[in-house]
Design a protein around this nucleic acid. Structure first.
Lengths: 343, 343
DNA sequence: TTTATTTATGCAATCGTTCCCGATAACGAT
DNA sequence: ATCGTTATCGGGAACGATTGCATAAATAAA
């Protein structure tokens, strides 16, 4: 059904026998308008419940006061918390946010970006999908100086602001912690190597092993390339780590969704959860309800969202093009619970 | 920084020495355009990576092919799953979705609705906040026949399609289940009575008690009016139920976030979780990782989102105004685990 | 050859808003 | 009476895209 009878500035102009310009200025509170005209317009607009059409405004002003977000999944503690951080800043600065999900698909991600751009968003906050390796679809946009800030899952070759957690440190400390608890055969389940977070965490894991003289074993690292989107992929990874009985004595998982799905899989696969040391990256609030309570690496999701948004708005509102970009690294937090204590 | 050099239909027209009309028709594949002109335009557009400006299109066509969503929190399993259901339908029908959060604030909810409307969304999917009692801000919109579908948290007095879970049945069965397991003093933590889901579930709880000859005790029902947004509110409710030692022997919680927060609070308050029978409405996938594994009432969140979207798109695309509205009730699912077994 | 028809293209209005220019009137100063 | 100033307000272009209508050229029919 066609729906179009919302009140516009033209309607007000016609009703009050004024021109649209006058009405516009009255509503904007410009000085050139006489007090009585202004009052008349404001009262009428109020009475008729007038709201400016943001579409028309965007077209005219060439900006929308809206920020586009692309994340892989909102059903992910890290991202939903990050989005809350984003909103907390954006809202106070007068921006609205438009949230989209890539569902770990590069095509969907690209479509979302294009859609957001053709909706005239003033800037983009991006966290890439597992599938994404080729980001040439951003080239043109980026070359023209379109404001983009990457967070969490970032691309080295895309030179814009980046806001991330200290993935390397987080993984290093988590692994070192497991070692300090006496574990020696530490499995690592992570997602695709496409992602910086995977590589950084893997490196932290490796370096911690090396520091303590534990040889690195390729067989103990399993990549779930869809980042936990497909349960079977994760269960298979978990199972394979247990093929030789006692092959691993502890497990370290990277990635929010991956960690929670791993916990399910561990439970389902011969109830292994209680039989290995465990620590994982996750932002769930329920970690201490498990038995044993789960040790986690918690990322400052909210703050990452906030910081990314501050940088983005700074870029949007800067009068001269921003050409020097920074990478901000926020500290993650190791929360030791029982799951990583000696068995 | 002002950013505006995206390619438009005018640029193409100028470059190829054509009129914008011709370019537009060529891009739309209209028959009136000669094959060579069409080819020339298409090739140039492709090469310059032309994308139509959806803002301009929306303004012209008076529709945006976008659907606005307002939920209280995306960091809530029910809503994030519902949103995935919404997206699954919308995407296939060529609609984009714009997700906003009210954070359980009526004002924020209203602002979001107004913002979405002034962005020319073609319809709204609404789930109300805890705070909302007065929805007069929707009156004008609704009277004019603007397509709105309510889901989960709905308002009786707003006559549009509604898609909900069988809250009464779910609560009734959950309570009856606890009774069948021998529990008699069953506490109920729920959110504000403003919400239909609260009232329906409370009624289910009451009726189950009555059916089995258990007197209803007002003291055993606690309302967390912010729906679990404020931890202290929940902890207080939990504590108060335990003031008289052994006052309750089981707990039934309504609401996704409320249930998870309650579990935390139960754990924190003298580690009570293992000492009471427990069942709650929640869609978390981690319920069986707790000890004991949590019995839950699981709502068909994904399907609710899907169905609501189907109804909405039907309304949007209907040529005549829709005046007869239906309320669809989808079955929830009782999943019995150990938390509700006799102690 | 003339007229009718088809084919291909351009013009201009439209959507809602803002803002640069002008236009008009009132008023005081000359 | 004329001019300049100031205070108010309107006209119209612009933003990007679509589309009904007009027009031109090319072709077909007479």
């Amino acid at each position: 059904m066609k729906f179009d009878d919302v009140i516009t500035i033209k309607d007000i102009a016609k009703a009050l026998n004024l021109s649209t310009s006058t009405v516009s200025r009255a509503l904007r509170g410009r000085y050139e308008i006489s007090a009585e005209t202004k009052k008349m317009v404001l009262e009428y607009a109020e009475r008729m419940n007038y709201r400016p059409n943001l579409i028309a405004l965007s077209l005219k002003e060439q900006r929308s006061k809206a920020i586009g977000i692309v994340v892989s999944e909102i059903a992910n503690n890290f991202f939903s918390q990050a989005i809350n951080g984003i909103e907390s800043i954006a809202y106070n600065r007068g921006y609205h946010v438009i949230i989209t999900q890539s569902h770990e698909s590069r095509d969907r991600e690209m479509v979302n970006v294009q859609h957001l751009v053709s909706r005239n968003v003033d800037g983009l906050l991006l966290s890439f999908s597992c599938e994404t390796t080729d980001i040439s679809y951003l080239n043109q946009l980026h070359e023209k100086g379109f404001p983009i800030v990457q967070f969490d899952r970032v691309m080295e070759e895309l030179d814009t602001h980046k806001v991330i957690a200290d993935n390397y440190q987080g993984a290093f400390h988590a692994t070192e912690h497991l070692i300090s608890q006496g574990f020696r055969k530490i499995g690592h389940i992570t997602s695709t190597i496409n992602l910086n977070i995977t590589r950084e965490r893997l490196q932290g894991y490796k370096d911690a092993l090396q520091k303590h003289g534990i040889p690195y074993d390729d067989e103990l690292v399993k990549h779930c390339n869809r980042g936990g989107m497909i349960y079977d992929e994760v269960e298979e990874a978990v199972e394979s780590l247990f093929i030789n009985k006692g092959k691993i004595d502890a497990l370290f998982t990277a990635g929010d969704r991956l960690t929670t799905v791993c916990l399910s899989a561990l439970k389902n696969v011969q109830n292994k959860y209680k039989q290995v040391g465990f620590i994982g990256f996750t932002n769930t609030n329920l970690a201490d309800l498990f038995t044993p309570p789960v040790s986690v690496v918690r990322q400052p999701a909210f703050e990452i969202g906030q910081r990314a948004t501050e940088l983005l708005i700074e870029m949007i509102e800067s009068r001269k093009p921003v050409t020097v970009f920074e990478q901000e690294v926020l500290s993650s937090h190791l929360i030791i619970r029982d799951s990583s204590k000696p068995l």
